[in-house]
């Protein structure tokens, strides 16, 4: 597991960045990209860029030879790990281009829109590729629908909170309708995180080989599971309470996001720790 710790950080940050960007791109795409509020929001996408950049930088920490990193290009099309890296790189590049152009080249409206669309699509494709990277036919604990479901649920939940934080100071975007939409996506994502967690635990309980079971692979299995459940519940209660009582503030959003990241981080630690193959 320790060897996979950089991947816990990578998957979490990249899922949050991709989820947030996808939601914001959907909001921006319908707007005049040159109006003041659109530019304001576009420039705030530096946060997405930093998160995704940090994610990519962290992912190189689990390589023995990070300097040979370019060799992943050799597996393009054949290996999902290659595809994941290349698609995620495309995402980072499109977001970077879009952000930079929102400062320097506002007149390139068509190109900016194009980079927004490429960013949106590569964000989605990156989440899918990340899932397929782990859906290895010899690794029964990972090779199931729970992997993509869990990854997309994390992206929706953390992404919606990130999007809310970024649009919050911009009046034109922080409309009741958009707020409601983002809270809806995020809360639905949170519910999905909880459901997938339960169903995945049931799936794992049915897996064994002659040498081990998923729970035997990880000494902290039940305590980490409990911690994750408690954190998810806490995030849900805080989020729902602040929505229902109309007490949403940047602080409440940030607190909810931190709880969600802690819960999903615990989930990812479990995910890597229960790793086992169909054999030895």
């Amino acid at each position: 597991m320790t060897k996979d710790f950089p991947l816990v950080i990578f998957t979490l940050l990249q899922q949050m960045a991709a989820g947030g960007f996808i939601l914001l791109a959907l909001l921006l795409i319908k707007q005049q990209l040159n109006q003041a509020s659109s530019l304001q929001l576009s420039r705030r996408l530096i946060v997405v860029l930093i998160l995704s950049g940090l994610a990519l930088a962290t992912s190189t920490l689990h390589l023995g030879h990070p300097l040979r990193g370019a060799n992943v290009l050799l597996g393009l099309g054949r290996s999902w790990l290659s595809n994941e890296v290349i698609i995620t790189g495309t995402f980072f590049g499109s977001v970077g281009f879009y952000w930079l152009a929102s400062w320097k080249k506002q007149e390139w409206v068509g190109l900016r829109k194009l980079s927004l669309v490429v960013g949106l699509l590569s964000g989605l494709a990156g989440l899918a590729a990340m899932s397929l990277t782990y859906m290895i036919y010899t690794v029964p604990v990972w090779d199931s629908w729970h992997t993509p479901a869990g990854f997309f649920a994390t992206a929706a939940t953390a992404g919606a909170l990130l999007a809310l934080l970024l649009v919050q100071p911009i009046e034109d975007f922080y409309t009741p309708k958009i707020q409601a939409g983002l809270h809806f996506v995020g809360l639905l994502g949170l519910l999905a995180c909880a459901i997938v967690m339960g169903m995945q635990a049931a799936h794992w309980a049915g897996i064994s080989t002659s040498v081990t079971t998923p729970a035997e692979q990880f000494a902290g299995y039940s305590s980490w599971m409990t911690a994750r459940a408690v954190l998810l519940l806490a995030a849900g209660i805080l989020w729902l309470a602040t929505v229902l009582k109309d007490r949403i503030t940047p602080i409440s959003l940030l607190a909810t996001l931190l709880l969600v990241l802690a819960a999903e981080g615990a989930g990812r630690v479990i995910y890597y720790s229960v790793h086992m193959t169909v054999g030895l």
């Binding site: 040979r68 790990l81 990277t133 010899t138 030895l280």
Partner: peptide, 12 residues
């Protein structure tokens, strides 16, 4: 090899 250890995860 870049030492990503993905093969190690996959080989049963």
């Amino acid at each position: 090899c870049i030492g990503c250890r993905h093969c190690e995860s996959a080989c049963p």
